[in-house]
Structures are given as structure tokens and as C-alpha cells.
Computed example of a mutant assay.
Amino acid sequence: MATIFTTWQGVKARMGVAQRQARRGNGAVHLLAVSKTFPAASVRELYALGQRAFGENYVQELVSKAAELADLDEIEWHFIGPLQSNKTRPVAEIASWVHTVDRLKIAERLSVQRRETTPPLNVCIQVNVSGEASKSGVAPTEAAALVRAVARLPRLRVRGLMCIPEPTGDDERLAAQFATLRGLKEQLEREGIALDTLSMGMSSDLEIAIREGATMVRVGTALFGARN
């Protein structure tokens, strides 16, 4: 059975190859270890190897792991799941990043509930690049307006865009969805909105995402194994 060191090194090697093939510098893409459903002990083990950024999908799991791992001074929690308006407070208080802002109401609550004594909360606007009715995320045509509105809120810092593409075995279709997100970022930059993050790509498609401009890949299965 592969150790966490072996899987971590394997993911980092995949990322390195993808960055070189895309003619992007080493370190252009950051690894977010998605630890949802895995115990705090697994997070602690990966942290000991040097990983610092961890992603959680569920509010209660974020709260419990953050409490259990409070002694890890440099840990950086990213919330990457759907966020209901009645559950924003613990996320605003604990997380360093929220990747799934798709409505102004959620951003407004995060802004109000973020403590003034902590650094601004980094946020990404989630965009529904596949057009699936079941997917969260703002429509691509509405993303720019939401970015501008969220950027005006105090105690938040809009860092970029995030997407979860339609699961498909068609690499060209995946690439096109990632390219849609990259195009939106480039459009916003031309309009004077500085963004530095494209949160896209997971265990199965991180190479395609990196080729299309990802700056952060969200990897769980390839690091921790299959979930129950």
C-alpha cells in the first residue's frame, strides 16, 4: 500500500511534468490537498511532509479538524464545498480561502462575519462552466458582475475563479471548459480587475487543467486514496 509520502511525491511529480510541458515555471501551480472524509491524523501526516494548504467540503468537518489540528501553526484551510447562508460564520472565522462563492448574499455574510483582527478572507468566484443545472456556480455571462460586487466588500479579497467541470472522458471537452474559465479571468484582467488564481483541476484531470492555466489544483484521491 502506498504511503502518503509516495502519493504526495507522485502528485508533485505529475504537476512538475505538466508545468514543463505547458512551458510554465516550476511553482506556477499550487497543490491543495483535499482532505474531506479523511481523518485529522492523515492531515497531520501530510503536514509533517511540508504540505500546508488543505481543502474541506463540509462545514462541520472543517470545524472539527481545525480544532483538532489547532497546534499546526502554518496550516491553511480552504473551503471548497457548497456553502449555505446559515453556515457561513464558522467558515468566515476559520478558513483562509473560500473557493465556492457563487452569490452576493454568501459573500456579504462572509464579509460581515470575518473578524477585523484576521487577514482578509481570500475568495474565488465559482463559475458553472459546463452549464449543468445540477452544478453550483454563477453563469459565465454573470461572473464579471459578481466579481466586481464582491471586490467592493470589506474583509474579503477576490483572488480568482474556480470551476468543477462536467465529468467526462472527453479531454477536448474538459479542456474547453477549463479554457472558458481562463478566458473569463483574462477578460476581467483587461477590464482592470487583478486576479491571480484559477482553481481548477483534480486528481484525474490536473494535467489538462495545468495546460489550460490552472494556478491551483484540488487533489484528494490521488493523495489519500479512494473515499468510502
Score class of each variant (00 low, 15 high):
L62A: 08
E191A: 14
A179S: 14
G160K: 12
V17Y: 02
K135M: 06
A95K: 03
R190C: 10
T88Q: 01
T100C: 14
E212V: 00
L83R: 08
T117K: 13
F79T: 10
L161M: 12
A18R: 02
A179V: 03
K105I: 07
N228S: 09
E116I: 04
A70R: 07
T118Y: 05
F54V: 04
P154A: 13
V63H: 06
L121H: 06
C124H: 07
G137Q: 08
A209T: 00
K135S: 12
H78N: 06
E56C: 09
R24L: 13
A18P: 08
L223S: 00
R173D: 06
T141Q: 15
A194C: 05
G183P: 03
R52T: 14
S35M: 10
S204R: 14
T180D: 06
V91N: 05
V59K: 03
I208V: 11
L83Y: 04
R115V: 02
S64E: 15
R52E: 13
A48W: 00
R211G: 14
I164F: 07
E108Y: 02
R20P: 10
A28I: 00
R152H: 14
A48L: 02
R173G: 02
N128A: 11
G131C: 05
A95S: 06
I106H: 04
S134E: 11
P39K: 06
E189P: 00
G27L: 07
V129C: 05
G50K: 08
P39A: 12
R190W: 01
E61G: 08
L184K: 08
M1T: 15
L184F: 05
V34N: 05
A226T: 11
T118L: 12
I193P: 01
E76L: 05
A176N: 10
V91D: 07
P120L: 11
A145M: 12
G10K: 02
L46H: 05
G137S: 09
P90R: 10
E191V: 07
V101D: 02
T7G: 09
S199T: 03
E207K: 05
V112K: 14
A28V: 00
M15L: 09
R173N: 07
G55L: 07
R14T: 08
I193S: 11
A2H: 11
L161A: 12
L153E: 13
Q84H: 09
E56R: 10
S134T: 15
A13C: 00
R157P: 01
S199K: 06
G27P: 09
S130K: 10
Q126S: 08
R52D: 04
R24F: 09
Q84E: 07
R114V: 04
T3S: 15
D205E: 08
R227G: 09
V43E: 08
T221R: 10
L72E: 01
R227Y: 09
T118Q: 13
Q51M: 00
R182P: 00
T117Y: 03
P39V: 04
M162D: 08
A40M: 07
D205P: 06
L49D: 03
W8S: 12
A222Q: 05
Q60E: 13
K105R: 14
S85V: 09
F5E: 13
A133I: 14
K185C: 13
G192I: 03
A143R: 10
L104H: 00
Q84P: 05
H78C: 02
V101P: 02
I193Q: 15
G160T: 11
P90V: 02
R24K: 14
R52F: 02
R173S: 13
S85W: 00
G27D: 08
L174V: 07
F38Y: 15
K12I: 05
G213Q: 02
G220F: 11
